[in-house]
């Protein structure tokens, strides 16, 4: 009982200090800072992508996203390493999916893939991007797993896709360095914002990220499904 009391007291101290500091110094929604001022006003014509968040994520702070992708990649490998079993995990999912789910998955699976692709292809125009698109694709595959008890993805193909897309992203970065002198420099022309082919290499990166995230998340789910506790 004392433990709960003590933890509540500690929490009270930490959170109230956080809250008081926040409410005092950063009044909700005051005007934007110097850095974001430039992103907002010059973002579009500098990077060419209508979606400013994508501009920041891929162009201004592209390095973070490269790190980001690596984190996910490391996590996927880590899960693979942690749950590694000598023989290939065979799925023993006892629960048989009902008929509606089976037919529904046959119909919806391609739709979800298409929708995911749409999200990461239009990353620089509409809200969303590589990560969100990849997640949608992963849900498509999860849906497939639930419906078909013996289905499991083709590992070799997925790892190849993963590596290929990862290499595209890193490769673009290195090309930017070789050609333009700065890592992840936007080599291709910005084109007119709003168009599909605009904002130079951003859409290419987002497509690569989309595929990579989709493949990795599915890989993680596949390994987790394979292991019985």
């Amino acid at each position: 009982m004392i433990k709960r009391l003590v933890s509540i007291i500690i929490l009270a101290v930490v959170i109230t200090s956080l809250f008081m500091v926040l409410s005092e110094t950063a009044p909700f929604g005051d005007d934007e800072t110097v850095v974001s001022h430039r992103y907002i006003y010059k973002g579009v014509d500098e990077t060419g992508s209508a979606n400013l968040v994508t501009a920041v994520v891929l162009n201004y702070r592209g390095f973070d996203t490269l790190g980001e992708v690596t984190v996910l990649f490391v996590a996927a490998t880590g899960v693979g390493a942690a749950l590694y079993t000598r023989k290939h995990p065979v799925r023993k999912n006892k629960v048989e999916a009902s008929l509606i789910v089976k037919t529904g998955s046959k119909l919806l699976f391609p739709m979800m893939l298409l929708f995911g692709a749409y999200i990461f292809v239009h990353g620089h125009l509409t809200p969303g991007g590589g990560f969100q698109g990849g997640a949608v694709i992963a849900t498509a595959f999860v849906f497939k797993y639930i419906s078909d008890t013996r289905y499991s993805i083709d590992h070799v193909g997925f790892t190849k896709m993963e590596s290929a897309s990862g290499m595209i992203f890193a490769g673009l970065g290195i090309m930017g360095l070789l050609l333009g002198g700065y890592f992840l420099l936007n080599i291709l022309p910005n084109g007119t914002p709003g168009e599909l082919i605009s904002a130079g290499i951003l859409p290419i990166i987002y497509i690569a990220i989309g595929i990579k995230v989709g493949a990795e998340l599915t890989g993680i789910i596949d390994r987790m499904m394979g292991v019985e506790a």
Binding site: S7, I10, L11, V13, V14, S17
Partner: peptide, 16 residues
């Protein structure tokens, strides 16, 4: 976790 939280609480109070 307790040690970390106590450390944080003490630091914040000291900071305050």
């Amino acid at each position: 976790v307790y040690y970390v939280m106590v450390f944080l609480a003490v630091m914040i109070l000291a900071g305050w």
